[in-house]
């Protein structure tokens, strides 16, 4: 029953047309107004970062921009909070490894 319905159905939302984003090369659909984290969750993806020490998997935790657990690399910029960044058509999200700045190491 109710538990089979999506949040959009529960509130009777009539969102505009979905669009495509990609996650680690995989194509996903997102709805206008959805955060990147919400779009990833909708696709069943729960983890999109590994920790700096130990490489453990991380995704959204607080969902409201406070915990910084949900950091992701979005359009080549690391450390973006996926729970706050609205998904936009064509966004490329990649799993962030550690601090996401490995290329800068000297």
């Amino acid at each position: 029953m109710a538990r089979d319905r999506s949040p959009a159905e529960l509130v009777g939302a009539a969102p505009e047309d979905p669009f495509e984003i990609s996650f680690d090369g995989r194509t996903l659909t997102a709805l206008p107004g959805q955060s990147v984290a919400a779009a990833l969750w909708s696709a069943g993806i729960l983890a999109w970062r590994t920790t700096r020490h130990g490489g453990r998997a991380r995704g959204a935790f607080c969902g409201i921009g406070q915990c910084y657990d949900c950091l992701a690399t979005i359009n080549d910029r690391p450390n973006r909070r996926a729970c706050l960044v609205p998904a936009r058509p064509g966004d490329t999200i990649t799993t962030q490894e550690g601090h996401g700045h490995a290329g800068l190491a000297v």
Partner: peptide, 9 residues
């Protein structure tokens, strides 16, 4: 700054 690899030695 945000955490970085060693960029300044």
């Amino acid at each position: 700054t945000e955490p970085l690899p060693r960029v300044v030695r």
